[in-house]
């Protein structure tokens, strides 16, 4: 049965859902809610989470020694290796369980890895691919804020075209980043033995449901969470949810899942809004909008989004009831 907000509030009225107060993420950041939504779901379903973090906003801001904003077992190793690290933890769990050395063997352990888009799309991709291919039972969640925000907004493979970054700025001559965002969902879905889904905190029920599926899936899961960075997307502190809604309504961030090759769009948007609305709502595209070629760049993005949306529907239809294994 799908969880709802009232149930979760009742359950967590007087306890922390894995992550606690006192972290130093920017006001209005979406990342702590990504962690909170995922871990609340796990705990409410009777799982005991063990979390690994890649270096990034969520990591540095929650564990400044001697302060930790986690009340569950937590390990950070480095930037590019959270998947390998949690694969070691998960393997140790199996080894110790076999040898009767688990402290509390009756509990259901759930292994989570959180990484930003830098630690996932870019520097951590090999480690992630390896861990998923090996089939470790873990849930990898990327909080995708479309750049290296922890270090001040550098370009990543997840940065969209025309977004202002410090390492590929929109200049007088060059238009900034022109490449499309890497399609991490398709990359991960190509690993065969995996449950892959996109989520957004603006659709909490869909988010909870997908974490539940990921927990119950017999194998690794990869969840891409849209995670606005209010600071470097140049929006007001209270806009993370508004921007997320707009991303879904424009088709910029389609909500869907791929389970053993079967595609399913979980949020059908009747008529997509123009992506320009998403772009105009954020200061990070201000310099792009000033350029004479703005319409051309936005037009190309629009065309891509429209085609991807159509393609998703085709895939949904074509793969219906035809799991690949």
């Amino acid at each position: 049965m799908a969880l709802n907000i009232m149930q979760l509030a009742t359950m967590f009225a007087d306890k922390n859902p894995g992550i606690t107060q006192g972290h130093r993420l920017c006001p209005g950041c979406a990342a702590p809610n990504v962690a909170k939504f995922a871990l609340m779901t796990a705990e409410s379903l009777g799982y005991t989470p063990v979390v690994g973090l890649a270096t990034g906003c969520l990591e540095v801001s929650t564990t400044i020694f001697p302060y930790t904003a986690w009340n569950v077992p937590y390990i950070h190793n480095a930037f590019e290796n959270v998947a390998a690290t949690i694969s070691g933890v998960e393997t140790a769990y199996r080894a110790l369980a076999k040898r009767g050395r688990i402290v509390d063997p009756d509990k259901k352990y759930a292994f989570f890895a959180f990484g930003g888009d830098g630690g996932t799309y870019d520097i951590g991709l090999q480690s992630l691919s390896g861990a998923v291919e090996r089939g470790h039972k873990f849930i990898y969640i990327v909080y995708d804020n479309e750049g290296y925000m922890n270090t001040g907004n550098q370009r990543s493979g997840a940065t969209p075209p025309g977004s202002q970054t410090t390492t590929q700025p929109v200049g007088k001559k060059l238009p900034g980043k022109i490449q499309l965002k890497k399609n991490i969902v398709e990359i991960m879905a190509g690993h065969e033995n995996v449950y892959v889904a996109t989520v957004s905190t603006s659709e909490p029920m869909d988010f909870f449901k997908k974490i539940e599926k990921a927990l119950q899936f017999d194998g690794p899961a990869f969840i891409a969470a849209f995670s606005p960075c209010v600071r470097f997307w140049r929006v007001n502190d209270d806009k993370a949810v508004d921007i997320s809604k707009l991303a879904i309504e424009t088709g910029y961030w389609p909500l869907y899942e791929v389970e053993r090759g079967v595609y399913r769009i979980t949020k059908k948007v009747k008529e997509l809004k123009p992506v320009k609305e998403f772009i105009e709502a954020q200061g990070r595209f201000r310099n792009l909008l000033k350029r004479p070629d703005a319409d051309e760049i936005i037009g190309e993005l629009q065309e891509y989004i429209t085609r991807r949306w159509e393609r998703l529907h085709i895939l949904e239809e074509a793969t219906k009831d035809k799991p690949i294994r």
Binding site: Q21, G22, Y67, T68, W70
Partner: peptide, 18 residues
């Protein structure tokens, strides 16, 4: 470098940022 207790950040006041 281990923090051997959970939730120690709850001692840290972030309300001063407001």
């Amino acid at each position: 470098g281990v923090i051997d207790k959970p939730s120690t950040a709850k001692e840290y006041q972030t309300g001063t940022w407001r």
